[in-house]
Each structure stands twice: as C-alpha cells, then as structure tokens.
C-alpha cells in the first residue's frame, strides 16, 4: 500500500501540479512539499510526498562508493 512512483513536475497550479510519470500526465496534490517546475518528485496516492534530491543513478553510485569504503575500512581494520 505504500507504493510510490517518481515523476517530473511540468506545471503548477496552486496546490496542484501536473506531473509526467513515464510519459503519462497526471494531476497530483503538492500541499505536502515545496516544488518547482522540473523537479523530480515521489508520488503516493495522488500526492507528492517528497522532492527527489538526487537522481537514482547518483544514489546507487553513492551507495556503492559507501560500500567500498566500508569494505576497505573493514579490511584495513582486519
């Protein structure tokens, strides 16, 4: 039930915005966030829950850098 999908803000009208979710244009509520056109957002049940801070690729890259650091720390400690 907590499924959420990413989308991109393309138009803002007061408390509502149009978002592009994989080429589908959907109207969502933006009362829970501060957004600008062009922002990538996380959408759940017709509402934007959060603005995506980085793109996913960057996050995964970050994760694996972290992993590597963790592994290096462990190996140097051991």
């Amino acid at each position: 039930m907590c499924v959420a999908v990413p989308g991109k803000i393309i138009e803002i009208n007061g408390d509502k915005a149009k978002v592009d979710i994989m080429n589908n244009i959907v109207e969502v509520n933006i009362r829970l966030v501060s957004v600008q056109i062009g922002d990538y957002v996380l959408i759940h049940a017709g509402c934007v829950l959060e603005v995506l801070k980085k793109d996913l690729a960057e996050e995964i890259l970050w994760m694996f850098n972290e992993l590597q650091e963790g592994a290096n720390e462990n190996s140097s400690a051991g």
Binding site: C2, A4, L32, H44, A45, L49
Partner: peptide
C-alpha cells in the same frame, strides 16, 4: 494505511 498514507 501506514505513516506514508496518513498525511493524505
């Protein structure tokens, strides 16, 4: 729902 849906 859980916390995710509560604000909606």
């Amino acid at each position: 729902g859980f916390e995710t849906t509560a604000p909606i």
